[in-house]
Design a protein around this nucleic acid. Sequence first.
DNA 1: TTGTATGAG
DNA 2: GGCTCATACAA
Length: 668
Amino acid sequence: MSSSTQPSSRGSSPPSGALPLRRSQFTYRNLSQMASYNTSCPLRVIAHIDLDCFYAQAEMVRLGVAEDQPLAVQQWQGLIAVNYPARAYGIGRMCTVTEAKKLCPNLITQHVATWREGEDKWAYRDDAAENIATDKVSLDPYRLESRRILATIKDHLPSHMQKVEKASIDEVFLDLSAHVHAVLLERFPEIARPPPSGDPSEPLPMPSVSALDWQADALVDLDDEHAEFDDPDWDDVAMLVASEIVRNVRAAIRDKLRYTCAAGIARNKLLSKLGSAHRKPNQQTVIRNRAVWHFLSGFKFTKFRNLGGKLGEQVSQIFNTESVEELLVVPIEQLKLKLGDDTGVWVHNTLRGIDMSEVSPRTQIKSMLSAKSFRPSINTVDQATRWLRIFVADIFARLVEEGVLENRRRPKTINLHHRHGVQTQGQTRSRSSPIPQGRSLDEETLFGLANTLLNQIIQDGHVWPCSNLSLSVGGFEDGISGNMGIASFLLRGEEAQALTDGPRTRAESKLKEQSQPPEKRRRIDDGGIQRFLTRKETPSPLDPIDALAEDNGAETSRVRETKLDSDAPSLPDEGPVLQANDETAIGGHLCARCGACLESSESLQSHQDWHFAKDLQEEEHGRLGFGNQASTTAASPHSGGRRSGPAAPKRPGRPKKTERGQQKLSFG
DNA sequence: TTGTATGAG
DNA sequence: GGCTCATACAA
């Protein structure tokens, strides 16, 4: 196939004879769509940042070992992360500790921190591996480091343009569209002016540069033969700017925290994620729109997000191939027929690198779980109860970090899962119950609830032997900071009144509703198969509560705004472009802050007031830094760890890329 | 609301 | 494999 099968590729590019008056394939409207994070904007720029073998790096930083020191993180007799120096010795995932040591006698194998019955805090213990029967793993040290990294990332983005989604403990997505938009206007004054014709659908002039300076570090992924002859258009320039931003963010993470990471820059989450996995340690990859087809064609689709499991298996069974290229020729009707309409359409789009899913500005967790697999199974209520104590201690400590004590956030439900039988098999059951709201939540209360759930499970019989138990809390809700904060004076009448009625009452509920579209809660991020492009009429006001929340300690004292009316007025921007049938907000008032589409200027104003209030609220109880609260851990820098083991996550994608064409001048 | 499955790191 | 997380869907 050629790039013409690719949606966004410059399908019909004029003969390379350079007419100075050639127009961009993008319009003024497309440009302004960037400012509102319109998911169908063809100039959208998304980045995915992925820490290199995160747990291993965290231990390296904690222990202060040299960068080239082989190190692995051990969990019982296995390895859960291996740094790159160790991988050079052939140490990988499935290595046992002894094998790893044999391969590299110099290897440091640091065991993860553990909770231990009788102790009230997790800690790094020299004898953890031999105490699998009494210890339980704690990943807290990594959660804390994850927060520091997240804060650093946010610190290096403009306070009103931090659209960051924490995808996992060591990954984030950034929607850099608005940020890049601002940089473009600044660097290219010719497009900062309104369209000469006054018509937003007028094409932009071509960028005033004939070649882009992709720094060596930001490797561009190739094209097929001819595409490189086309002059760069605005999407290429946008990618370049984003690549600069990402390079700076990575440098900050490295300089301040001593962590390296890989990154991918592309037009959506799907592609940026594939991009970050493309060149692994400490590098970044740009996938320009014109290179998408070439980049994807070499993949097995089972490498794509959501196709790595049973769905992918099902697809490959039905069509008898795992190749993207081969599946690409299957008509969409065929996909719909075999997979169902929604899934069929989703697969069809995904194979083509089309993904309109939002970068959901969520950095807070929604549930927390503490679990233990019992190597020798446990067989008594007493044993189970003792584990519950540890689970509760673990979870409660984390709840404190989340601000339960200040009633900042608290969970609504508690669940206990149980697995009967041996090892990984055996049926699992669970029981859950609401967590009484009202009074403050303490450790004993939690323990009582957990015990009740345990008793319920026991009553159902078939409990012993038990091979796994896990306790989790979820359904977190934001509370109102006790002193009915500053936020309240911004609220009008009844809302303000309600605020005083007590924690988390109608006022909050109301605000919540307002921040989330009517019907259900809009599915902002990925997850489900369907729902990807199809809809998206009004850009959802991304749950602002979550949005800013986690900017913990970050001293990002934000300043008032309301500004950027400059781009807001571009209001009803809609995205023709991508064939994906998505018309967007029509005739609404867009909030430049979050992309929400309000019906009237009044509601827009009110909505912006809400942002203001929320900001103040956040500012008020500015979350404290995390670094310290680790209190418990005896961060004693001892090095002679134990064994080592397998590797870390992902790996470099396999596509065969023909690197080429990039360098040249920079902006005029 | 409660419980199970799936997918991911 | 073990330990977390998130989400969709069924009961």
